[in-house]
Design a protein around this nucleic acid. Structure first.
Lengths: 357, 357
DNA sequence: CTGAAAGCGCTTACAG
DNA sequence: CTGAAAGCGCTTACAG
């Protein structure tokens, strides 16, 4: 492997001069510059960033830790973050925890050892061991999608309770009373809040007792949870599903039972994946403004990296209703509260206080 | 940031001893070991992998370069590769080129500079500048999904021509003659081969002249290409779509024109995303065995990394037909050639010869 | 503008 | 089994 020293020898200058030319820092005589550039090109020199990072004590690397790389919600975030990081000269180490606390801890250690300058974390385990360690080492963390327990981290989350409440009210307004909830991992803030929103709506309207099953935010889990809900209440007439992957599972379960959507079971989902309008019937969905959330996360992270802010900040985004056929609310008496402003205009709330969980 | 030297001072031993304890290499007196471990824990020491990698000349890192991180086809691959790498103690640097040759070159340079030990590359540009440089530096590359021009790289690809031919024949067998093809990036092997398979089938059966539009492997492009095909031939009765994202676009275009699938336009797509069976009508698809392909790619890469193989190898996987309603071949006279073996059993072909493009 | 020298934080022959 | 020393490949005050 060609080193900077070899380039220096070939160009007949000192290593310091080569470094100056290649890094663009400091003045170098045009002739030397030329010679260095030529020597580097002839040798096919590629600088060793390990050495450079070690010396400069800057890695220009950030970590992204997601709980499920196959969830398009996270993929979309990864795309935006990767792009923004690239334009700032940063690279991305991607980690997938598969919703496992152990893997999260292991990966956070890896990122610490790699001396990444910051981490965007969609936590599988909000109390996870690695979190405090990284923050203690001065590595900023922005929690994405789900807050973490440690108050020093920033957070970008959606108004999960509000979104789930609205999804539930949509079905209540359409006259449903027996509404089930396919939830996700109650130990995770997202799951807990969405469930709370659902239960809150049910309670306020004095509907039947809430009926909740945990689908673990996965396709298979969502399918199994739906079966359990259907078995528990044969008269169930509507379903709120807490994320897009479980919506796939719920759909499969309803089809397998020969239940028609929305006539037999009406259906609202949280998240609006790109295929939602193609399924039969098209899915009524509460969409998170993922791109905006991802950009907010990157901005928060780089504020920390650049040392422009030290107090924790949380950003909450609201959901956007996409009314389609699956909720069966085409009944005339129902006036959807959101159709007035169909444009994507997420209400952005900034708070300097950490979020309550 | 705590260093190994500080741990040594606290434990009252030399840095060498600390290194031996923490790396597990070499014998250390139990008492010393104990003291080192305690000191490291008390200080919250995290080893600096930059320094370690620099010294050992091993980074235990691989790069994955995909052309579209939002394409579930690649996401699924990333998941499998990441998991396999993790279990071998390797980390993954993820790069997204957005189908841009420039970004691919930039990223391959980044990966070279990071001294990754190998790269899995779904090329946006098969002749891209960075490829030869990496191979020249001794960094192995496994081309995924699409081969690269450089003969020194390994490759894991699908039998694209065969898959597209089969998709087309399925529609020809059902009696269609005016079949359009929504293709993707003819300059990419995948796109070229799939188009060749379609044209080959059309020619053999003496159907109408092939009708091809390029959708660039993206949703929007697929939608626009479908409009162009419909405009070019109002009597078009069937469509072969060359990947899953363009299928979304084609679907949207057909709906927007009020065309019913499969009665007005029958429809077969290449790739079988998880939502394919939920859309209306369910999509007939030719599926690639992505998990198997990803595992093959990892295996090929680590054979190289571990120095167990030096001659290039290509692995070709065949497609698996998933017959559903969108192709409208439920007509009794049609006997699907694949339903006999519905289990996923990809025929695996090993060749030591690089693939022809 | 240029170079010699020190040092980033590790690991690993080498000598004892 | 243990430590002193050299070195991985860079960068950057420092002196000239």
């Amino acid at each position: 492997m060609v080193t900077l020293k070899q380039v220096a020898a070939r160009a007949g200058v000192s290593p310091a001069t080569v470094s100056r030319v290649l890094s663009g820092a400091g003045q170098v005589q045009p002739e030397y510059r030329e010679r260095v550039l030529r020597a580097a090109a002839e040798l096919g020199y590629r600088p060793n960033r390990l050495a450079s990072s070690l010396r400069r004590r800057k890695t220009e690397k950030i970590g992204i830790v997601v709980s499920d790389i196959e969830n398009p919600h996270f993929t979309q975030m990864v795309r935006v973050v990767e792009d923004a990081a690239y334009h700032r000269g940063y690279r991305v180490l991607l980690c997938n925890t598969d919703e496992l606390a152990d893997k999260q801890r292991a990966y956070l250690h890896v990122l610490a050892d790699e001396r990444v300058e910051g981490v965007i974390l969609a936590p599988a385990d909000p109390a996870g061991a690695g979190i405090a360690e990284l923050l203690g080492m001065g590595i900023p963390i922005v929690a994405f999608d789900r807050a973490v327990d440690d108050q020093r981290a920033d957070a970008v989350v959606a108004d999960n309770a509000g979104g789930a409440r609205r999804a539930t009210e949509l079905l209540l307004d359409a006259g449903h009373t027996r509404i089930g909830f396919v939830g996700g991992r109650e130990e995770i803030q997202t799951g807990r809040q969405r469930q709370a929103g659902y239960e809150d709506a049910m309670r306020r309207r004095q509907a039947t007792a809430p009926s909740v099953e945990d689908g673990g935010f996965r396709i298979d889990g969502g399918e199994a949870a739906t079966y359990r809900l259907l078995d528990a209440d044969p008269r169930l007439s509507a379903l709120v599903v807490a994320n897009n992957l479980m919506a796939v599972g719920a759909f499969r379960a309803l089809r397998a039972r020969g239940l028609h959507v929305p006539d037999d079971v009406a259906f609202v989902t949280i998240d609006d994946p790109y295929w939602a309008s193609l399924v039969d019937p098209p899915l009524t969905a509460l969409a998170q403004p993922v791109d905006g959330m991802a950009r907010a996360a990157v901005d928060l992270l780089f504020e920390r990296i650049e040392g422009n802010r030290t107090t924790p900040r949380s950003v909450i985004f609201s959901f956007d209703l996409r009314l389609r056929a699956s909720c069966g609310t085409a009944t005339p008496r129902y006036q959807p509260p959101c159709l007035a402003s169909p444009e994507r205009q997420p209400a952005l709330t900034l708070s300097t206080r950490p979020l309550p969980s």
